[in-house]
């Protein structure tokens, strides 16, 4: 079937079996490799991206549901060269180790901050349940709080 959506701002249309996981469409057909395969069972969160601004685990999301929607992947999280506050915070806290799970965590965090701009530790615990085997959780928590600060600072600096 023909599926059309916007991905990272680009209108895209492709011919694909509608039950194909969005993850494989994004990685293999659109060559956006930042979104990772971890488990294929919606268990680890490495494949997290945004569909209409909401966090979705794309390994378990049939591409047919994406028709007509806006998809954002890690490649589209930044605004050109201007890193998203979550990415900026990740840089400042030097979070990644192997780095494989990090795009999924950053996408989940960005989704969290758009719903809860100033998350408490408990909010973080309840919302961010992705898996990181290098166990960078300690720095990730610091980075999430830092990202919240950067985001509100950006918002204040925005001309009204």
């Amino acid at each position: 079937m023909t599926i059309s959506f916007n991905i990272n701002g680009q209108p895209t249309s492709l011919e694909v079996d509608g039950d194909t996981p969005l993850l494989w469409v994004v990685r293999d057909m659109l060559d956006l490799k930042g979104t990772k395969f971890g488990c294929g069972k919606a268990a680890c969160g490495a494949c997290t991206l945004h569909v209409d601004g909401k966090a979705v685990r794309s390994c378990s999301y049939a591409v047919k549901y994406a028709d007509g929607k806006n998809i954002t992947t890690i490649e589209g999280l930044s605004n050109g060269d201007q890193l998203h506050p979550v990415q900026q915070a990740w840089m400042e806290e030097i979070v990644p180790q192997c780095g494989y799970c990090q795009p999924g965590f950053m996408m989940a965090t960005a989704a969290l901050l758009s719903e809860i701009p100033n998350p408490t530790d408990e909010d973080i615990d309840n919302n961010i349940v992705n898996v990181c085997r290098c166990a960078t959780y300690y720095r990730m928590r610091k980075a999430i709080h830092r990202a919240a600060g950067l985001q509100s600072k950006n918002a204040k600096n925005q001309p009204s």
């Binding site: 490799k33 840089m91 990644p96 780095g99």
Partner: peptide, 13 residues
């Protein structure tokens, strides 16, 4: 800072 930091933050393949 890690030399691979930026790439790992922007999802470079």
């Amino acid at each position: 800072p890690r030399v691979d930091l930026k790439d790992k933050v922007i999802g470079a393949p």
